[in-house]
Design a protein around this nucleic acid. Structure first.
Length: 508
RNA sequence: CGCGGGGUGGAGCAGCCCGGUAGCUCGCGAGGCUCAUAACCUCGAGGUCGGAGGUUCAAAUCCUCCCCCCGCAACCA
């Protein structure tokens, strides 16, 4: 049985979670659920990136300690992900000195022993007002915008990771044809590849404690703290307890590894991370799934524009599955996407209510009115179902999730057309029983396809239909077997349950 | 300057890799149905597929150049 280790980027908890965080987790979860449903063994990890200067500063501005800040914010992420039914197995926090730090320290030592770390002088612009290093980009007319003073050039001793040595190895690893680390979608990978052509520079791996105190201490160097990319990326190992006595090594060494991350950090995950792993003698991941960014009504979400969409507002109004549906259906993997309340409402009505919900309801009511028992036959619709299963699986395995969910909705469209064309409400006796049973069977297939995307909805549909495996559907070891995909395979399925409105109209 | 993405009927998007009746959702018009969450179904109006060249029997789809929008541009998560 294939083993899959999927992890998302870990989130930066200096503020509350936003829609971009949600999209990434839903994407990873759809993937994880699909792998489980096809029979793979899966672990999904998420987490919070709690160290760094920004956390330090945000905390200071709020008059609290960094620990207090992350203890307040990280649970917001974890709670939101639970509410979204993200089926994660572990939530790693990088301020956790027991779980995270030992792995990071061990990795550091390996890199150092391998000769991949080197102490150098780092020269940077330092603003005494901010008490931190600033970049050219932060400056306005060469001055710090906050303190209106010219930053001074300050030099300090830092550790550097000799990434430049790994240029050829990374080219080989990421080669679209012969490399073992695949970037999905491939056009996102092109950006990384062209960057790689430009040559790699060594990267700063530590800062002086005066600059950065909130982070993992460098072993045996009390005045140095690890810099973000050393500590952050390693969370993917520490969440498995790597290099400790409780490591779950099989989930790395004997697993297919997928990183689910955003386009902004693709480079670090495609290059820095595997380079670090190779230097430390650890296997590199198999797949990098790169998603785009999400806008709000076509514009970048920003507080000044006042167009920030708070995920919990959407959940409060529409519930979990409509949001999962929107993100999966509207935004092809890799593309930038847009969140629009208008579009959301339209889609909710057109697809979820009118197409899917209404189909279920009309079939259920027709069956229930006369208490018609199910009579499974080889029906004309079974070809349609078989074709859509092919589309569905092909799309799912290629991570073209928006096409897969479309296959499920194509089936419900076919169901609605069939009822109309054949005027099923006017049929009588055995014929009516057989025709309506076919529609129920169609809905059973639809519900299975929806399982990775809208688990609760899939279960609700199946519950109304009263399919035999209903109680196992949401369990992690539930597998969609070939038999389940076969038309009329559920011989012991004789009666449907009670009709219920699947998606109610929403008052706006 | 460079790199990546985008420019398709009123709106939002898919199709482009593997050329061959331009598709989807919403909106609009007409008709049908009445089992259903005023839901469903059918038909229709509406596009010189950013511009100009080129390849081809044939280009939204391949090649070249140009214009416009967005992001990145190296340590910033």
């Amino acid at each position: 049985m294939p083993r899959q280790y999927i992890h998302t980027a870990i989130d930066f908890p200096n503020a509350a979670p936003h829609m971009g965080h949600v999209m990434e987790k839903v994407l990873a979860d759809v993937m994880a659920r699909w792998f489980r449903l096809r029979g793979d063994e899966v672990r999904l990890h998420v987490g919070a990136d709690e160290n760094g200067i920004k956390i330090q500063q945000t905390a200071e501005a709020l008059g609290m300690t960094p620990q207090e800040l992350v203890d307040r914010n990280s649970p917001l992420f974890e709670e939101l992900f639970r509410r979204l039914n993200i089926s994660f197995d572990y939530f790693i926090r990088t301020s956790d000195p027991k779980r995270h730090w030992p792995t990071v320290v061990a990795l550091w030592n390996r890199l150092k022993e391998g000769g991949f770390l080197e102490k150098r002088t780092y020269a940077g612009l330092y603003c005494t007002g901010c008490e931190r290093f600033v970049t050219e980009k932060d400056l306005v007319d060469g001055l710090c915008p906050d303190h209106r003073q010219r930053p001074e050039v300050v030099k300090e001793e830092n550790w550097f990771f000799l990434l430049s040595r790994k240029q050829d190895a990374m080219k080989k690893l990421l080669h679209p044809k012969t490399g073992t680390y695949t970037m999905v979608p491939s056009w996102r990978g092109n950006e990384v590849l062209s960057f790689l052509e430009g040559g790699l520079a060594d990267v700063s791996f530590s800062r002086s404690k005066e600059t950065l105190y909130w982070g993992v201490p460098v072993p045996n160097e009390p005045d140095q703290v690890m810099y973000v990319w050393c500590d952050n990326l390693t969370s993917y190992l520490s969440s498995l307890g790597f290099f400790t006595d409780h490591e779950m090594r099989e989930w790395w060494d004997d697993a297919e590894i997928t990183d689910v991350i955003g386009k902004d950090i693709a480079r670090f995950h495609a290059i820095n991370w595997p380079a670090m792993l190779q230097c430390a003698g650890v296997k590199t991941p198999e797949r990098l799934l790169i998603h785009g960014f999400i806008t709000s009504d076509g514009q970048k979400m920003s507080k000044t524009l006042g167009n920030v969409v708070v995920p919990s507002d959407v959940l409060d109004l529409y519930g979990v599955d409509p949001l999962r549906f929107y993100l999966s259906h509207e935004i092809p993997v890799g593309n930038d996407g847009d969140f629009s309340w208008k579009r959301f409402g339209e889609l909710y009505d057109a697809k979820l209510r009118n197409q899917l919900g209404n189909l279920l309801n009309r079939v259920m009511v027709l069956l229930k009115k006369e208490e018609i028992p199910l009579a499974h036959t080889k029906h004309a619709l079974r070809h349609e179902a078989a074709l859509r299963w092919e589309d569905f699986q092909k799309a799912m395995n290629a991570f073209e999730f928006h096409l897969a969910i479309q296959a499920a909705f194509d089936l419900s469209q076919s169901g609605n057309v069939y009822i109309d064309v054949h005027k099923l409400w006017a049929k009588k006796g055995q014929e009516k029983a057989e025709e309506l049973s076919a529609l129920a069977e169609l809905l059973r297939h639809i519900s299975l396809m929806l399982l990775p995307f809208m688990p609760e909805t899939a279960q609700k549909i199946s519950k109304q239909l009263n399919v035999p495996y209903i109680h196992r559907m949401l369990e992690k070891n539930f597998v969609i077997t070939d038999a389940m995909k076969e038309w009329g395979s559920q011989k012991e399925w004789k009666r449907v349950g009670e009709p219920e409105i699947l998606f109610a109209p929403i008052e706006k």
